[in-house]
C-alpha cells in the first residue's frame, strides 16, 4: 500500500505515514485481541457429542472431560484437570412407580447418600422449569469427600452438588452436578450449558 504524503508533517510534527502506522498498529492489536478472546471461547466452550439410543439421551459434554459409562448411571463426565474435587456431571435413570412424586425420589436419594458419603447435608429443594418448559425439581446438597489417598496429609474437599430430577414415562431422570465448593460458582455455567443442550 502506498500512502501519498500531502503537505508533509502536520503541526504536531507527525507525518501522515507515521500517523497511519500507529493507527494500523492499534487496529491490529484490537483485532488480535478479539481473535484471542474468540479462540479462548471456542476452546473453553468446545463440546463432544454423546448419544445413548437405549436410554434415549443425547448430550454435549465439555471437550477434554473423561467420560465413564460403567457405573450405576447412564454416563458420567469428569474434569480431571480440576484441582481438588474433580468437577462431575452425571446422568442417571431410575425406574419409579407411577404414583411416585419427585419428593419420594429426593427422600430416596437422601437416604442412600447419607449412608454412602460423609456429612451429607441437603441444603434446599425447589421446583424449576427447564429450557424446554418441562417441570423439574432442583435439589442442592453438600458433603465431604476425604480424597483418594488416605496417606496424603490434606484437608478433605467440601463438595457442593445439584440434582435436577425429572419424572417422565415411569422413570426419574437425575442429572447431577458435583463440584468443589470453592469453584462451584465458576463451574456452574458449564453445567448450565450441558443442561440446555441435553435431550432426553
Amino acid at each position: 500500500m502506498a500512502v501519498i504524503e500531502i503537505g508533509g508533517a502536520s503541526q504536531s510534527g507527525i507525518t501522515q505515514r507515521q500517523r497511519w502506522g500507529h493507527y494500523f498498529a492499534v487496529f491490529y492489536a484490537a483485532i488480535a485481541l478479539l481473535i484471542g478472546i474468540n479462540l479462548r471461547d471456542s476452546s473453553v466452550n468446545a463440546v463432544v457429542a454423546y448419544s445413548n439410543t437405549t436410554a434415549g439421551i443425547r448430550a454435549l459434554y465439555p471437550r477434554g472431560w473423561l467420560i465413564d459409562t460403567d457405573g450405576d448411571y447412564v454416563f458420567r463426565v469428569r474434569d480431571l484437570s480440576a484441582g481438588g474435587y474433580k468437577t462431575t456431571i452425571q446422568v442417571a435413570i431410575e425406574p419409579v412407580a407411577p404414583t411416585a412424586s419427585s419428593r419420594n425420589i429426593v427422600d430416596a436419594l437422601t437416604l442412600a447418600r447419607s449412608q454412602r458419603v460423609a456429612a451429607y447435608t441437603p441444603l434446599s429443594r425447589s421446583p424449576i422449569s427447564l429450557s424446554d418448559e418441562r417441570e423439574a425439581l432442583a435439589l442442592e446438597y453438600a458433603y465431604v469427600e476425604p480424597g483418594d489417598n488416605v496417606f496424603l496429609s490434606a484437608i478433605p474437599n467440601v463438595v457442593s452438588g445439584l440434582d435436577i430430577i425429572v419424572l417422565q414415562r415411569g422413570q426419574a431422570i437425575i442429572i447431577s452436578f458435583l463440584s468443589d465448593s470453592d469453584t462451584y460458582d465458576s463451574n456452574y455455567p458449564v453445567f448450565q450449558r450441558f443442561l440446555d443442550a441435553l435431550v432426553f
Binding site: T15, R17, Q18, G21, F24
Partner: peptide, 12 residues
Amino acid sequence: TRFSTPSPFFMT
C-alpha cells in the same frame, strides 16, 4: 517509523 519512511504497516 520515526526516522525513515517505511510502509505504514511496518510498526504493525
